[in-house]
Design a binder for these strands. Sequence first.
DNA 1: GAGTTTGAAACT
DNA 2: CAGTTTCAAACTC
Length: 798
Amino acid sequence: MGEEGEKLQRKSESEASGRGGPVMDTPERNRITASVSKFEDSPVFNYISNLSPIKSVKSLRISQTFNSYSFSSLPSIFTSPHVSSLKESRFLRRHSFSDPSKPEFSSDNGSKVDSVDGGIDVAHNSDERSFDPGSSIGEAFVDPTYECSNLAIEVSQTLNNSCCSPDCSTMPHRGIGTTETFVHEISRSGFVGSEGHLERKRNIDQNKEGAGCDWESLISDATDLLIFDSPNGTESFNGPFQEPSDPRMRLSTSLVSEFSHYEINGLQKTQTVCPTVVEDIDSENPPSHVGEGHLKELEATGDVLAGTSLNTCMDGEPSEQFDNEDFSGLHRGMRRRCLVFEMVGTRRKRIEDGSSSGSPLLARSEVNIESNDKQLVPTNNGSSRCIVPGIGLHLNALARTSKDHNVFSHETLTTENHLISDPSSTGSFHSWNTGQEPLNKSLAVTTMERNRGDPDTQSRGTEDASPASGYVAGEEISQGSPKKKRHVQRRLENAGETESCKRCNCKKSKCLKLYCECFAAGVYCVEPCSCQDCFNKPIHEATVLETRKQIESRNPLAFAPKVIRSSDSVPEIGDDSSKTPASARHKRGCNCKKSGCLKKYCECYQGGVGCSINCRCEGCKNAFGRKDGSTLVGAETELEEETETCEKSVVNENLRRRFSPNAIEQNPDSTLPATPFQSSRASLQLPFSYKNKPLRSSFLSIGSSSGSYTSQRFGMPNILRPQHKFEKQIPAIEEDEMPEILQGNCSPIGNGGIKSGSPNSKRVSPPHCDFGSTPGRRSSRKLILQSIPSFPCLTPKD
DNA sequence: GAGTTTGAAACT
DNA sequence: CAGTTTCAAACTC
């Protein structure tokens, strides 16, 4: 260590002076150096430098990074990250903390540790690099000047040590300046204790001594982690809630106690800040001053490493690892709420992908992630496609407040679309999770956006309960420390308030049937669930997936949202729409006989949508709209007049009206409005927000729909789309017009020959079909079925 | 909280 | 495809 320490000091000094290594050449570097020089000049800086090069460096960087972070947004990063570096010098520590992602890291690491490990990370790094437009983090890390590498190594070591201890969080809390002291203290105190840490140190040392190849790998890992964090932290964290801070809080609690100087607020800020750090690295690192850049990198890496070490130490089980710990806690809450961190999701995706064998999704996910980081919201849309997993989130998001939903809707929709495009998601759940996170991000970004677990979703600015969230949460919660659990529970409760999250109470189904709301939603059961003998947990992922496949094989749309709503809520409906979203319809329609479609027994009513022709209900009194199509608002009188017996005949007439373009316009209330999806969002507002479940399910299905299921692809995409753009289309399809949708979507389904499953066939009322010929709704169904055949032709896919 | 009702899902 | 059973949520008390 002595030699290394000297080297480090030398390097740090040289770096601090701005001499820097090779990296310095870039203009960015110059800028950074200039800002740094100020710090260097300061007596404090000198003092710090004397103490330990690392410290000094960090402090400087942190300040800078912090700046970018604090204001973080990607743009800021690229533009002028250093603006307020000085002010924020204090926050440097936070930076280290900031890695809200740590928890995530841990999770990631855990996953990595098991199998993928370095390989994945490396791949990620490579990917990231390629992705990074500007200076990629990966590059910065990769190029570790020897000096920097040394510093980084020590830092990482220290970080690792700290991390290794259960109190991992401590590291971040500590100021950068104190890192060394911390390390020593920690080691003394025994924090280091975990073997994993020791091993890591050894590796690091070896790296230092040796070529440092490991070092690079470590860095790469760290970079990955950082990258993930950054995106999340930057926007997602800032926006949404305090939650982001929560995870840190948990981790850091012990640390906090020690380091009273770090205030909770600071921690929270740090979390938000962390992402910015990453950004800085990306944009600045490579070229910018060695000292700062390295410091940042080091810090980042250290955090990352810490996270990894934590993971390794903490993890017992690979699968659980992800979910476990911080990440799990965060995601848990996040996901349930829809706040899932993108990072996490991405990580999972990566991991999963890696495990699964490099499915296309992985690459996509990675790309998305990076894009997310940099571009954040905007990118999400584009990149999100890969992330697809977000589906769950979308649902959740939808379920959430209409406002949020509105905000998210765009992103979610976009993400969904992407998802749809990526049928290949390997593991349904995994994909979900991953997707969720990205979605969450998008959500968070938009609203504040940002998953995940995910999932998804939710996001919504908040949460969502995305399936992913559920998934992650479940195990994480169980594994998590009591504190974490508490946090999670709180979050869950909050989510519960919003109704985004559902808890099942299955006793006999083992949560492997559609009876289980969680399973139906594509989410893993979580602690709050009262289920017995539950197999809907990550541990039983294989079983779950298999079961899903079986169910999907029977009914490709089984996991599709039951209620299709026009994503783009058309204002047409206006207030009424909230009550009677004409655009939204139940996929299959209800079969109520006693409830009169006025209770939640009725899926249509539960979904906040009116009954449609597809419904077989008797004595329909659905407040959102009767199967006749007449909504209470508009055509109550008419409906009232119609008796059940009469309804059939009337229905035909109504159908005619609806289908006639004029009629649609005239009767906006009619369920079949020309713009089927107008009120999809509005539907969110509907009293039964949780009903959105179907949405989740759809998301899940999307994500879940592994490439294997072509049928799912068909069904899923359709489903998904509906929410986005498609929602409009879909509703139309189901209800009335929307031949296009039907064609695309329905055809597959119809072809699939799903029984009821083919909602399209049954439910989709072929708008154009001759209503006159159809005496009753059933007849209409038959007609629809007939029309279906045409769909197959239309469906491009297969 | 226990018991009943209800309708979807699953099964035959 | 129809009928029956199973199941869990929704509902009632």
